[in-house]
Design a protein around this nucleic acid. Structure first.
Length: 166
DNA sequence: GCCAACGTTGGC
DNA sequence: GCCAACGTTGGC
């Protein structure tokens, strides 16, 4: 499957993701977004979206490197993501590991996204949407990659488990 | 269960 | 900085 994840680039950008082997996608504290995290499988494709910046838009492609496991920050009293109501034997919040695949040669801004075909079902473009994790229909995935300057078929090979660089 | 108040998100 | 939209909280 395909997904879109939002990140504020001032906090964590696509370049930050590309500078390390993987990143634990922790701190998600919305039930709908959490359920999407739990539905992710290793090798799923991710659109990495820069939010709360100028201009907002899709900066790169990433993949799910590890399926959902308990978000450790929920048990850390010092963390802003600490959740007193969650217990280790029944964790409330989950995270996945995310790894960079390719930056988009052409950044696809939100403004540009609004002009594209095949994106009618993309939750990102729906009014008032605030989800930080959401599914992306395959037609939208392919369209955004093409406009961004990537070959969806080549990316598919890199997403497959055991795929990756080379 | 209702709903007003409040906090957060995120585009502009 | 503004504010619309939305989720959560808590009194009742």
């Amino acid at each position: 499957m395909y997904w879109l994840v939002k990140s504020e680039p001032d906090v964590f950008s696509y370049a930050d993701l590309a500078s390390r082997p993987f990143e634990p996608w922790n701190g998600v504290r919305n039930y709908q977004a959490r359920n999407f995290l739990r539905a992710m499988q290793v090798g799923d494709g991710l659109l990495f979206y820069h939010s709360n910046t100028t201009p907002p838009g899709v900066a790169g492609v990433a993949r799910v490197a590890r399926a959902a496991y308990p978000d450790d920050l929920q048990f850390d009293p010092e963390s802003p993501y600490f959740d007193r109501g969650s217990s280790p034997d029944n964790p409330r919040w989950s995270m996945v590991d995310v790894a960079a695949v390719a930056a988009l040669p052409r950044f696809v801004s939100l403004e540009a996204l609004r002009t594209l075909e095949d994106l009618e079902d993309l939750a990102l473009l729906r009014r008032g949407n605030r989800l930080s994790v959401m599914p992306v229909p395959e037609a939208a995935w392919r369209r955004i990659l093409e406009v961004g300057g990537l070959d969806p078929d080549e990316i598919a090979r890199q997403l497959a488990p055991g795929g990756g660089v080379g």
